[in-house]
Nucleic acid binder design. Structure first.
Length: 906
RNA sequence: GGACACUUAGCUCAGUUGGUUAGAGCAUCUCGUUUACACCGAGAGGGUCGUAGGUUCGAAUCCUACAGUGUCCACCA
């Protein structure tokens, strides 16, 4: 074996290892070894990152979780598909490119470039981002199938999107309608309700009357929209206004025509708020528009007047005083006019939530327009259910009440949020006036309309110029990636997918839509388990963002500390649904652990190699051995480490199965660092002939760590010449990535409890002896003399057989005696007492004070425990095990008291 | 206005159906270059689990109220 460097240098191995994995074909499920082909498929669709730039640490966290899961399941023998992709992110990408163009001097990119050229500009940017993103995903060690790489805007995905639209239209779920939309003036496009961010800011609330003789005073923060008012709504039971309901008043507020204001009744109006009357502007408020539709349905219609246009300026309808002005200008003028005419009754500063575009940042205007909508309430032909029903069912009873068609959300509380949202969903506005996106598959010629993937026969057909909301394509991600609408083998094998992870910020935007799309298109759920993770924040708890200037490039972190270090530091310390923080100390400790594992491996391999030299015939045997040594032979330490290993295998397996990444990682780290490195390997320096066990332990530990830290483990595995059982020439060829996961069932049966207890006692003894040395300030180099006294009424502790290694660990001689000589200092665990010979050099007063303090604590404990044990209520109601353990502990404490008191007297 | 989460050691966080004297990492203090590792080893100190009630033999854990922090949602004009 070549000389291995003391410190592990990730930068020297990661790219090489990744290339080897890629070349071996194991990322592609079809090329996995035999045993994986036979078992259950396991599929994770990677949430496609937006092609708006580069990946951040949040992506690294998400990738680490998914890849850990994929590797774990692959090693367990499942046919694993981890499918990578990117999202064209229509509005986000176009907004970003337009912003860049404007920053570089262009005034109106759309006008100056035209549709074709601007799209080309965006396409180029998107391709560049894509290249960067894909290389970043590789750097993160992601074991995804590059052969199945997908893009929401590629041909196959576009086909799926069009097909979906056409089918939904055919089912009457998609319709074209004139309704109030969320309009971004800056983006010159609609936005869905989910793309609006509410921002709190100060506003003025004006109270006024339309005219001197108008009977009701109303209030508003948007006076300029009042030019389009057509009604005043009051609560039907409001005594003040009841008699006015149904009457119409004509008022002149300066609009193009005098306004006909009808007094209408609406339950939604709060009589307590303000004047208890609401000026209704159907064209510029979603709520008011709903009243407009209600009135229409009632056969008592009111008018709708649009006074703000798509350009954000007042329309002709607003009257010549206002037409062409911005809303701010019009507002000022309108208020000034009210003041002049003595109609303004009050002005008040209030805080108000306004909706802004999450991409363009401007205030969203409500404007009535003809757009394409997806109906949430209409019954789907032949299904007797609406899309809303499907979305509800999928997370409650399961689709059609079938358990296997139920999406489980972790943590559970998000299920409730999801359901609340489902109940309040409005029809989804699908069409966007953006250019970067899937063109709506609808053609027009004169009055004719054709909905279909291809333009119809004949000349003169023009395709709708609008594009689809970007979430329409990402909603179909779980099956468009598998070849739908074709009935592919992949679709049959991998859908519904097994697991999906995402941040809670896109729960509504994405998760719901995936459920909707899969339920509609395939009558199935998109995934069985959804895991909602929190946001990664900086050390101060702030969100990472470019504007805050606290962004961290994951690739730089990887270059400095290694991918494994990054992954483990991101995964340890997280819990589902909760935000976590990233800071330097964390990544350093990840790096340190990687190095620790490296050195553990280095040591074990050295020991195996040197022992093999003494009996060369065994060398190849040992390296190739993957048989588990029996744990009823060997020394106590051997049996102990093997049983601990078994426990850890079982526990880590269970934790990974239930997505407890942090708990699994912590347990594994504690075992590796404490049990293995600090104890067993130290013992192995004394007790020889452990090649076989060390070999097993190392192999198992590497396997367990592989999902978390794929690079260092694969690297060591290769150096050691370990071969993966189950690997084959077709995939992996003995690589750790396809090695068989340690068997947790077999492991669970192999824990010899008495050995674990006995070893625990010895461990406590060693710690006691070390503490005595440290407390007494004995130089580390000085060899000392210990004696051990065992209590009579306890199972004997096997000190003598283990004295050799214990002796080395405490740097002193150890003898078992009947009584501790006078003048020695002691420490007691209850069952065993340790004495250290200080040859008279001991501060008796100090020692006495220490003993007294310890006794004091013990006595308090004994009193409270005895109190519990004599309490009838407790002894009759508490489980037997709890009582038993408590009694044992009490006895121990009593013995300890006895020992210490005796000591105090001498 | 509604909902949800969080509040545990100096810091960041675990704590899975309520059950020994509440844990980890980092930081702190003391000691240490015994040939795997100073990206290390040994030892130590440090918490009345936000506050107040309640349920229970038993509460960090369940319930109620309150306070602070954060997030999401919402048509109070």
């Amino acid at each position: 074996m070549p000389e291995l460097p003391k410190a592990y240098d990730a930068s020297l191995v990661e790219d090489k290892i990744y290339a080897e994995w890629e070349a071996s074909g194991v990322f592609n499920p079809d090329q996995l070894p035999e045993r994986n082909q036979k078992w259950t498929p396991y599929c994770i669709m990677m949430p496609p990152p937006n092609v708006t730039g580069v990946l951040h640490l949040g992506h690294a966290l998400e990738n680490a979780m998914m890849d850990t899961m994929a590797r774990f399941q692959r090693m367990r023998g499942k046919k694993v598909l981890l499918l990578p992709g990117t999202d064209h992110a229509a509005i986000a990408t176009q907004a970003k490119v337009e912003k860049t163009l404007i920053e570089s001097g262009m005034k109106h990119p759309r006008e100056e470039l035209g549709r074709e050229k601007l799209i080309e500009e965006i396409r180029r940017f998107a391709e560049e981002s894509k290249t960067t993103i894909l290389s970043q995903i590789k750097k993160m060690g992601t074991s995804c199938d590059w052969d199945r790489l997908a893009y929401t805007f590629d041909e196959a995905r576009s086909k799926a999107v069009n097909e979906l639209f056409v089918r939904m239209y055919g089912d009457g779920l998609i319709y074209r309608g004139y309704r109030v939309v969320n309009w971004s003036v800056k983006g010159q496009s609609t936005a869905s309700d989910d793309e609006i961010e509410h921002v709190e800011r100060p506003a003025k609330l004006y109270t006024f009357k339309y005219a001197k003789d108008f009977p009701i005073t109303i209030a508003t923060t948007r006076p300029e929209t009042k030019l389009g008012d057509t009604a005043v709504a009051v609560h039907p039971k409001d005594k003040r206004y009841k008699k006015l309901i149904g009457q119409t008043f004509t008022v002149d507020v300066g609009a193009a025509k005098p306004l006909e204001i009808k007094i209408i009744a609406d339950e939604g109006v709060d009589p307590e708020f303000g004047t208890g009357a609401l000026g209704v502007t159907p064209a510029h408020s979603a709520v008011d528009f709903a009243m407009y539709e209600k009135q229409k349905a009632k056969g008592d219609p009111i008018d709708i007047i649009a006074v703000i246009g798509p350009d954000g300026r007042m329309t002709e309808e607003a009257g010549e005083l206002y037409a062409g002005q911005t809303v701010e200008e019009a507002r000022e003028k309108f208020v000034a006019r009210l003041r002049e005419q003595g109609l303004l009754e009050g002005e008040e500063e209030i805080m108000q939530n306004v909706g802004t575009s999450d991409r363009y940042g401007d205030v969203i205007e409500a404007i009535p327009m003809t757009q394409w909508w997806l109906d949430m309430n209409k019954e789907i032909p032949g299904r007797k259910k609406s899309l809303r029903d499907l979305m509800r069912e999928a997370v409650t009873s399961g689709l059609d009440g079938k358990k296997e068609k139920k999406v489980t959300i972790t943590p559970e509380r998000f299920t409730k949020l999801y359901l609340d949202r489902v109940e309040n969903l409005r029809d989804w506005c699908l069409s966007r006036q953006l250019w970067w996106g899937h063109r709506i598959p609808v053609w027009y010629r004169g009055d004719e309309t054709h909905v279909g993937i291809e333009a119809p026969e004949g000349d003169g057909w023009e395709q709708d110029t609008d594009t689809l909301d970007t979430w329409f394509s990402s909603g179909s991600w779980c099956f468009s990636t598998l070849g739908w609408p074709d009935e592919t083998a992949d679709l049959k094998t991998f859908h519904p997918t097994s697991w999906m992870t995402m941040g809670y910020e896109i729960l509504y935007l994405w998760l719901m839509r995936m459920v909707l799309m899969s339920a509609y298109a395939l009558d199935d759920i998109p995934f069985k388990d959804a895991y909602i993770h929190g946001i990664l924040r900086d050390e101060h708890g702030k969100k990472f963002s470019k504007s805050a200037g606290n962004g961290i490039d994951p690739i730089e972190v990887i270059e400095q500390y290694g991918c494994d270090a990054l992954r483990i530091s991101l995964l340890i310390g997280i819990s589902p649904g909760n935000d976590s923080r990233y800071y330097t100390e964390k990544i350093e400790s990840g790096r340190n652990f990687t190095n620790k594992l490296w050195n553990i491996s280095r040591f074990i391999l050295t020991v195996i190699a040197s022992e093999a030299k003494q009996s060369p015939s065994h060398e190849s045997e040992i390296a190739a051995s993957s048989a588990t040594p029996r744990n009823d032979t060997g020394t106590l330490a051997d049996r102990w480490i093997l049983s601990r290993l078994s426990e850890v295998v079982a526990s880590v397996t269970k934790k990974l199965e239930t997505y407890q990444f942090s708990a699994a990682g912590e347990e594994l780290r504690d075992f590796t660092w404490n049990d293995l490195a600090d104890w067993y390997l130290e013992i192995a320096k004394v007790e020889k002939g452990k090649s076989e066990i060390l070999n097993t332990v190392l192999q198992t530990v590497l396997k367990l760590w592989h999902p978390f830290m794929p690079f260092v483990t694969e690297y060591v595995w290769g150096l050691a010449g370990f071969t993966a059982k189950g690997g084959s020439a077709s995939g992996g060829e003995g690589k750790l990535i396809v090695a068989e996961w340690p068997d947790p069932v077999g492991a669970r049966h192999a824990v010899p409890l008495p050995d674990a207890v006995a070893f625990g006692s010895l461990r406590t003894l060693v710690v006691d002896m070390r503490r005595l040395r440290a407390e007494q300030g004995v130089e580390a180099a000085k060899k000392v003399e210990f004696v051990i006294v065992e209590a009579h009424d306890h199972a004997p502790v096997p000190v003598e057989e283990n004295a050799e290694w214990m002796s080395r660990l405490v740097n002193g001689s150890i003898a078992v005696v009947d009584a501790i000589p006078e003048g020695w200092v002691v420490a007691s665990s209850g069952t065993v007492t340790v004495g250290l010979n200080l040859a008279g050099a001991v501060d008796l007063e100090k020692e006495k004070a220490k003993l007294e303090k310890e006794l004091d604590q013990l006595k308090k404990y004994v009193v409270s425990t005895e109190g519990k044990l004599t309490n009838q209520e407790f002894t009759t109601k508490a489980p037997a095990q709890v009582i038993h353990d408590m009694k044992a502990k009490l006895e121990e404490a009593k013995t300890k008291i006895e020992t210490l008191e005796k000591r105090l007297l001498t």
